[in-house]
Design a protein around this nucleic acid. Structure first.
Length: 404
DNA sequence: CGAGAAAGGCTTTCGTGAGA
DNA sequence: TCTCACGAAAGCCTTTCTCG
């Protein structure tokens, strides 16, 4: 579309949104030219060739009933604002994030305050504004950690628990570790029971057996499932950058870890100097310095390198391998994001490996990046609906193999 | 050198589906 | 039947990058 027609098109879409039979929260404009898309590329969060123009419904006013604080893995006390139940965009909503302690204090959010709540992107409840502030007596900002009772420290807008061994922090660290390495079953409730019984670090959890899980009060079935899941993530292929991202070091998520591991090997991570990190794109002085120091002192990393047997895929080697595949591949699937559903002729992981060998990127669930949904027998309705909603091309296994 | 843009990390909620 | 885990999506914050 020529740029001059863009504004006209936008107003036509807005008109359709207002008068149409279906509810819309906005519209996504995207570049259709494949060449330009490739040139524009994508970040870790968004495609650069798409832009969303969304509108929020009008806010609904409600009264704040309490403000609670929850401890994250970095020790930060994150406020949650609870309010009288409202029907927002078709769902009942009772709370929203308060972002940080300073926000609660500055905006006088406390019992009795009236806030206007909207649903950002029709999904996330968000406090749009404070209509009537609470009286100063009702604005609660903790002086001690709600979990361990240690004093809190204020750093800029946030409050932090001063106790490095706070159980709530341990819980969040363990959950983050298993979630990042894509292990299932280690959710908040389960991990909370483990921490309560003294299994309060990733190192301890990784060495638990079925008996240990039983002593934490879990049933025989759940214990067996957890043991099997840990065994699975330790034997199946695991990208080294996921393991580094799972350490929970600030400013070192999976994307940054990938950048480092594209040039260094995981064994070298504890010895990387600030200078070596500064040579990597995306690392400035501050991040390079703190990340280098934290990697050097990271007991969990030492444990993982010395005492565990994860079946690691090294990013550095993988990049070389991918380059060779892409150079040699004539497959139409090369560079495409593919999700499998239903029962195919091979297992899910084998199908994934087959797709990867052609230069495709296998995914577990449908996202806005997904190009193809490949359906075997007894296909799940959820994935079909998600594919339809996101405009993903649905293929049978036969059609998929023809593209290969 | 400073301002603004971009990126990444972290955190939140709800609905859904799996499994105990 | 109930509990728990997961996925999707967006906002805030900090840091880094880019450009004038």
């Amino acid at each position: 579309m020529p740029l001059e027609d863009f504004a006209q098109c936008h107003s036509e879409v807005e008109e359709a949104m207002r008068t149409g039979d279906y509810k819309y929260d906005g519209v996504v404009f995207e570049v259709t030219s494949k060449k330009i898309k490739e040139l524009m590329g994508s970040g870790s969060k968004h495609h650069h060739w798409q832009i969303a123009a969304k509108q929020n419904e009008a806010g609904i006013e409600t009264e704040v009933t309490k403000v609670t604080f929850q401890v994250g893995r970095s020790g930060v006390l994150a406020p949650t604002v609870h309010f009288k139940k409202i029907d927002l965009d078709g769902s009942e909503t009772t709370k929203a994030t308060g972002h940080h302690a300073q926000n609660i204090f500055d905006n006088k959010i406390g019992v009795g305050a009236v806030v206007s709540v909207v649903k950002a992107g029709s999904v996330i409840p968000k406090i749009e504004s404070v209509v009537t502030p609470a009286t100063l007596d009702n604005v609660y900002v903790p002086t001690h950690c709600p979990d361990c009772g240690h004093s809190v420290i204020q750093k800029e807008s946030n409050l932090y628990c001063s106790n490095d061994d706070c159980d709530a922090r341990a819980e969040s660290k363990i959950i983050h570790f298993f979630r990042t390495i894509e292990a299932q079953l280690f959710g908040r409730a389960t991990v909370s029971m483990l921490v309560e019984h003294g299994f309060d670090s990733v190192e301890k959890v990784l060495t638990m057996d079925a008996f240990d899980y039983r002593t934490c009060g879990l049933g025989a079935g759940q214990a067996a499932n957890l043991v099997a899941e840990v065994c699975r993530v330790r034997t199946e292929k695991l990208y080294d950058y996921l393991l580094i991202g799972a350490l929970g070091i600030s400013n070192l998520g999976r994307s940054s870890a990938k950048k480092i591991l594209a040039v260094h090997r995981i064994e070298d991570m504890p010895h990387l100097s600030t200078q070596e990190l500064l040579e990597i794109e995306g690392f400035g002085q501050l991040t390079a310095q703190t990340v280098s120091a934290k990697l050097r002192d990271c007991e969990l990393l030492k444990f993982l390198l010395e005492s565990t047997d994860f079946n690691l895929v090294h990013t550095k080697d993988e990049i070389q391998r991918q380059k060779k595949i892409v150079n040699a591949s004539t497959s139409l699937l090369c560079g495409k994001y593919v999700v499998f559903t239903g029962k195919c002729t091979l297992s899910r992981s084998e199908m994934g490996e087959f797709a990867a060998s052609l230069g495709a990127i296998p995914q577990k669930s449908i996202t806005s990046h997904t190009d193809y949904l490949v359906c075997g027998e007894r296909t799940g309705q959820t994935k079909m609906d998600a594919a339809r909603a996101k405009g993903v091309t649905v293929l049978s296994e036969t059609e998929f193999r023809e593209l290969a």
